[in-house]
């Protein structure tokens, strides 16, 4: 196999964390198989990114083109298809971001090459690459191999691959790339940021966080009560926002907020990885869930396997009692 190509993603003058993560994984895989590691970055004013990437990559390909400034699927599909045809890498690796989710499926169809997304592991076995995915709500893992193909496409799960400091000093190569035609059937109109109007959960020291397991909106009352006695704030998982029970500014996770409170109390939250990436920086995590196999228990320091609706009222009482005694 020839080389591994990592396509880096950036927005708002920052290279995506997940790009560093898959770059580190790419470096490791390339070293194990004695392959060349390439990284590609495109847009305008990308020299600083390119320099960063040379710490991991043997060769960094830069493409200066203002149509590639924003991470948009259509122009990037054309660029990456072009790079794959020119360079013929054995593996193309990207982070499993919203950008990649919009892009890689069509790319794999266009080029007729295999794709596995959102991998939690990527490894060599007898000279072949294998990947592992997490399936069925994190309750099983599946490993996959690839049919013979000159190039395979893989995206790696956000937060799954630790960043190892890059020790290389790769070189930078600029490639000319121009678009033949404008894409007039799909127009990018810009970005919208969801702004926090009320509570800023990123500032709270104690978060009492609720998930689908609280079952009904009215059960928020007792949870608010718990937050109050703990001097904390109520946050939540995505379904609670989807159902309209709490505003989106309270959502923790990949598409919500990243929080690092002193205490994160997860109530009726299963611990899907898209949730956990937003709260794993908490200093202490406690989970209450009636399912003993809920993935949240492998991130929590303490766990109670029970019905939240039974434990929470009791907890409010006990905390009030203890507080009464000291005050």
């Amino acid at each position: 196999m020839s080389s591994i190509l990592v396509v880096a993603e950036h927005r708002n003058q920052t290279l995506a964390d997940v790009s560093y993560q898959v770059l580190s994984k790419g470096r490791q895989l390339a070293d194990q198989a004695q392959m060349e590691l390439l990284a590609a970055v495109a847009g305008v004013d990308i020299d600083a990114y390119a320099k960063e990437l040379t710490r991991w990559a043997d060769r960094v390909i830069i493409v200066n083109n203002d149509q590639l400034e924003e991470p948009l699927a259509e122009p990037y599909q054309k660029l990456i298809a072009h790079l794959i045809r020119e360079i013929r890498p054995g593996i193309v690796l990207m982070g499993h971001s919203s950008f990649a989710m919009d892009l890689v499926p069509s790319l794999s169809v266009e080029l007729g090459i295999p794709l596995v997304t959102d991998c939690v592991d990527i490894f060599w076995q007898n000279g072949d690459i294998l990947v592992t995915r997490s399936i069925y709500n994190g309750k099983a893992n599946a490993s996959y191999s690839f049919a013979q193909s000159e190039t395979i496409l893989i995206t790696g799960r956000v937060g799954e691959f630790p960043v190892e400091e890059g020790q290389r000093q790769g070189w930078i190569e600029e490639i000319e790339f121009a678009f033949e035609e404008e894409c007039d059937y799909k127009k990018f109109e810009g970005y919208l940021e969801v702004e926090a109007a009320g509570v800023d959960i990123t500032q709270a020291e104690v978060l009492v966080s609720v998930g689908r397991g609280i079952k009904e909106k009215k059960n928020l009352e007792i949870v608010e009560e718990l937050a109050r006695v703990l001097g904390g704030v109520v946050s939540c998982s995505r379904p609670v926002v989807d159902y309209g029970w709490l505003p989106s500014e309270r959502q923790v996770g990949l598409s919500g907020k990243t929080v690092q409170p002193k205490l994160y109390l997860g109530l009726g939250i299963s611990g899907a990885f898209q949730h956990v990436v937003g709260m794993k920086g908490a200093r202490m995590t406690v989970a209450i869930n009636k399912d003993a196999k809920a993935p949240i228990f492998s991130v929590a320091n303490y766990g109670i396997v029970d019905d939240v609706l039974k434990v929470v009222p009791a907890l409010v009482n006990k905390i009030s009692e203890l507080k009464g005694r000291t005050e």
Partner: peptide, 11 residues
């Protein structure tokens, strides 16, 4: 996208 950002398109 991630972290509460949206992309708008007309298609």
């Amino acid at each position: 996208l991630e972290a509460g950002t949206l992309q708008s398109y007309t298609i």
